[in-house]
Amino acid sequence: MSVSLAVTGPYPRRPNFAKVVSRFLGKKVSKQDYDRAVAKEIEYYITTMKDYGLDYFTAGLMRFDDPVDAMVSLLKNVEKNGLVRFYDNNFYYRVPVIKGKLEPSEGEDYAKDLETARNVIKDLKLKAKLKLTVVGPLSFALLSEDKHYSDLKALMSDYASAINSFMKAEKNLYDAVEVIEPSFFQKGLATKVVEAYKEVYPTLLEGINKEVHLISYFNLRADRLEDFTSLKADYYGFDLTEDRKKLAAFVYRAVKGKGVYLGLLDSRNTKVEKLTSLRRFVEGARGVGAKEVIVGNSSLLDLIPEVIIHRKFKVASGLKG
């Protein structure tokens, strides 16, 4: 059994590109030039990260302010409102305000970026797979302001259908789907919400015959692990950066016979992990019979400087040697 390396979620927007974003928003750059700048950023990200032997890339989501924003681009009847803290990070996202029934929009910008990423991977003759990143229905619902539904399950369900439409329409552009669910292990999540989510989740992936990575960020609750791994996925992802020995013990119990994504590269600290430590956790997962192991970043790469991302993945690339 080999170890794979992956990026999850967005790749940081570089400040120079951010200036282009600002100019585009200020209508000082045409859409055509902006699209070209986005494509250049995607190319830069994949080209510079390829040296670490990544097996999975995402499209980087640089066009979007945050993963939630990327999802808003795929939906109708949603408006963006004020800035709100993204979980407990000093990072803020624009709250989607749901003003009507969630329906799919064309999502052509996201599709364009997937196509760019796919072409870059192909041109560089990489064997890596491209993951389509989507925010899970639970996290999207909890991160939104609902002015239309009064029922969380109905909101999640319509969201899942709308995103599923995009996934189906653009199925030729990606190899795998990563569903990020930072809210799944948050404190105070009611059991009835989890149960509702379990019923909605299959809608998201209905008819999608691709590899699925279900990835949580930031927290881990032992009492919800069974619920998490009961959802259909090929890989289950965990943030193993805080109190990692204790958390790994829980995770090991839950991933026997399953694929696991170990978020061991801390996206919230600049301290670079040691290869010996990464190896130990990979061996731990193998030891309990995890079917396959992927190692990658624990949450949004936006939360650390780019230079540190490279240092971390360089160390992690040693796992493949």
């Binding site: 940081p12 927007r13 400040p15 951010a18 200036k19 974003v21 600002s22 302010d65 945050d66 800035l83 000093n90 990072f91 803020y92 996202y93 624009r94 600049t270 301290k271 936006d302 939360l303 650390i304 400087p305 780019e306 230079v307 540190i308």
Partner: peptide, 17 residues
């Protein structure tokens, strides 16, 4: 300081270590 980190949209600060 290792480099800038984004706080939202196109806003950054040099988050220290």
């Amino acid at each position: 300081f290792y480099g800038p980190v984004r706080v939202w949209g196109t806003a950054y600060y040099r988050k220290p270590s």
